[in-house]
Design a protein around this nucleic acid. Structure first.
Lengths: 236, 236
DNA sequence: CGGCTGCTTGATCGCTCTCAAATGGGGTGG
DNA sequence: CCACCCCATTTGAGAGCGATCAAGCAGCCG
């Protein structure tokens, strides 16, 4: 059992972007230096404001990354999936985590502490290069979402968010495509910069039109192409 | 003259975050490999969609980085100042520039093409580390602005934007603090995700209250502390 | 089966966008 | 040096998107 888990983690790391180009020996070395962390839904890997001691790579599950303002407004920065990094502040010298990471499904991650991180990047420059690339991609992603938030209507933003979630966590079921982790209206609202009420109204209207089918913290897209045209703001 | 310019560029590079920790010889080497680019106000270093051949480091002047949506809505990502990088896509392997870079004052930058960039990062790992850090800082900055856009009112966002601009481009004059490059209401609107009309109304109201004094593409903050409390949403 | 938690829906309000028109400052060309 | 024109800005009026508040509903877990 223990060994099986270790092996599946190895599989994830082998294809994780961060470790691309490393040979088996290097990979083994990285794994050996990692700490294994497991969380159940609702548990947190770290909280906003904590000392940033480690960075994480998600092997299994789904992690919600959120930020909260002094006034108590919460926004969802992203949902991280298998093979993605989160809490990567230590890689670039930040002191505190600027966000909270919460498991939304049972999740296991590998974590490296700060000195180990530095050592790895020194020893395997490819890792630093990959990190640079991943950070760049993330920057582009956030910029895009910023632009959308600044210029698009709520309905379109919600559609876009769903399209993205489908791409990274969609699972075919007979009724359509299911987003395979619990996702409330509140979550969607915090992901798109609106309120739970508005999201609820939008989803209700889509349900009437047969675009989706939803339940409590559960969404199935029945006609993905229709959702995409909503996201692109094409008139039906 | 030529030599004087070269020397001032050297000064900028010496303190630029990207090249921190490099010795004189390494610095000279970097300079030697760079291309010098000069632009007058309104000219562009590159446009969104162009092949990303080089990355830039601004030695003098001010550069506006903008993105435009398919529907033609423009947003300002940031204003880069002396010593900052822009167009750094090549550092992390992107193909096209995701934004346009326009000089707002007479500007000179040094630029490195893609192979040179790779070589520099290989030869001087500190540069890669610094780049990682700078990218990380920028990511945090964008995330913050995203959060603000999602949760704050327009007036507060405009106040925050002005506070930031004062910090990075404020110049003491007898009437208060001047933002030392031309900045229109339209620019401010695109920087804060609102319209030129709303910005105009807000600035008019602030002018009435004596917080600022403004003219055409010109803003002086008379009472910076009042602006800060507007940005933090403290009641006066 | 009870209660908690998430969801729906109605009513209302107000911030902000939109469109229209006028104003004015500054630079340019004669 | 002056006049003109362009562009940034101001201001008003109106509409509407989406937030807010208040209730009621329903699935699900213990």
């Amino acid at each position: 059992m223990r060994v099986l888990e270790r092996n599946s983690e190895r599989q994830v790391l082998r294809v994780a972007p961060l470790f691309q180009g490393l040979n088996e020996e290097a990979l083994e070395n990285c794994i050996a230096l990692a700490l294994r962390v497991e969380k159940t839904p609702g548990e947190m890997f770290f909280q906003q404001g904590d000392q940033a001691r480690r960075f994480f790579l998600l092997c299994r599950g789904r992690v919600k990354v959120t930020q909260i303002t002094p006034e108590g407004h919460q926004v969802v920065a992203r949902y991280a999936g298998q093979g993605q990094m989160f809490g990567c502040v230590p890689m670039y010298g930040g002191k505190e985590y600027p966000a909270t990471a919460t498991a939304v499904t049972r999740s296991t991650a590998l974590a490296w502490d700060r000195p180990t991180t530095d050592r790895l990047m020194e020893q395997y420059p490819r890792v630093a290069i990959s990190a640079l690339q991943l950070l760049g991609d993330e920057l582009a992603e956030v910029r895009l979402r910023y632009q959308e938030l600044a210029t698009e209507r709520v309905e379109q933003r919600v559609a876009r968010a769903l399209v993205r979630l489908v791409r990274q966590a969609g699972k075919k079921v007979d009724a359509g495509v299911l987003i395979e982790f619990p996702l409330s209206r509140q979550d969607l609202a915090e992901l798109t910069g609106t309120t739970l009420y508005t999201v609820s109204r939008i989803l209700s209207s889509w349900e009437e039109q047969g675009v989706i089918q939803s339940g409590r913290r559960r969404i199935v897209i029945r006609t993905p192409h229709r959702l995409v045209s909503l996201a692109e703001d094409l008139l039906p």
